Computed example of a mutant assay.
Amino acid sequence: MWVNRQFFSIIEGTLYRADPEDRGLQLVVLQHLREEVLRQGRDIPTAGHQGINRTKERLQRYWWYRCRSHFRRYVKTLLLNLQLNEEKCQAGTAAPLDTVLCKLSDGEGASRFSEYVLMIVDQFTKWVECLPLPSQTVEVTEAVREFFSRFGCPLQIFTDQGRNFESNLFKLVCESLNINKSRTTPYHQTDR
């Protein structure tokens, strides 16, 4: 770094590096914060699962020595983990939150404030969540997202063919969280 010291400056007590490609200043990241920067820029479901080049673009405002090789190694490891998870799903080996079953039904007597009940079941642990809903519009997607925020995202979600689970919004949520969505065939129930 000393050889390239002309690229570095301290602004308000923080070390920055001038990007040689004139894209502005890059924050110099300390070693103990590098994994967190990578995780925030790559692993958050709303960031999508980007490849090596897109990850580099996304993280271009950060810098540390050999950061590009670190980006590449990190992304390759994540892609390998995604592939292993997919193979695990196909092989039928199960673990908590591998597969979650969802079903919406009218809430016969659930509560005077809700007309519907969304039932979510973790297929491995058999944990059941029954969530009362006032209607069956966007609330289904919000309830499923709330479940994911408490327990984590499953690898696969299995639903009936209800309109709520086939909506573009629900599909977009599954896509952005990298959840494989599948459904029953007509006239079959989700509780297998």
Rank of each mutant, 00 (worst) to 15 (best):
R5G: 01
Q6F: 08
F8D: 00
S9M: 07
S9Y: 04
E12D: 15
G13L: 11
G13A: 11
T14L: 01
Y16N: 04
D19W: 02
E21W: 10
R23K: 14
R23A: 08
G24E: 14
Q26A: 02
L27E: 12
L30V: 07
L30N: 09
H32Q: 13
H32C: 13
L33H: 13
E36F: 07
R39S: 12
Q40R: 15
G41S: 04
P45V: 06
P45C: 13
A47V: 09
H49N: 14
I52F: 05
I52N: 04
R54L: 08
R54W: 10
T55C: 02
R58P: 01
L59K: 04
L59V: 02
R61A: 12
Y62V: 09
W64F: 10
W64C: 05
C67E: 02
R68V: 05
F71I: 08
K76Q: 15
T77L: 11
L78N: 01
N81F: 03
N81Q: 08
L82P: 00
Q83W: 11
Q83T: 08
L84V: 07
L84E: 14
N85Q: 14
C89L: 10
Q90T: 05
A91C: 03
A91M: 08
A91H: 03
A94E: 12
A95I: 02
L97S: 12
T99D: 01
E108L: 07
E108N: 04
R112I: 13
S114V: 10
E115V: 06
Y116C: 07
L118D: 01
M119T: 10
I120P: 00
W127F: 06
W127K: 05
C130N: 01
S135M: 01
T137L: 01
V138G: 11
E139K: 02
E139C: 02
E139R: 01
V140L: 13
T141R: 06
R145C: 13
F147T: 12
F147W: 15
F151H: 15
F151C: 04
P154G: 09
I157T: 06
I157H: 03
T159Q: 03
D160P: 00
D160W: 11
D160H: 09
R163H: 11
R163Q: 14
N164D: 14
L169Y: 13
L172T: 08
L172N: 07
N180V: 06
K181C: 07
T185A: 13
P186K: 11
P186E: 15
P186L: 14
H188A: 08
H188M: 10
H188G: 03
T190F: 01
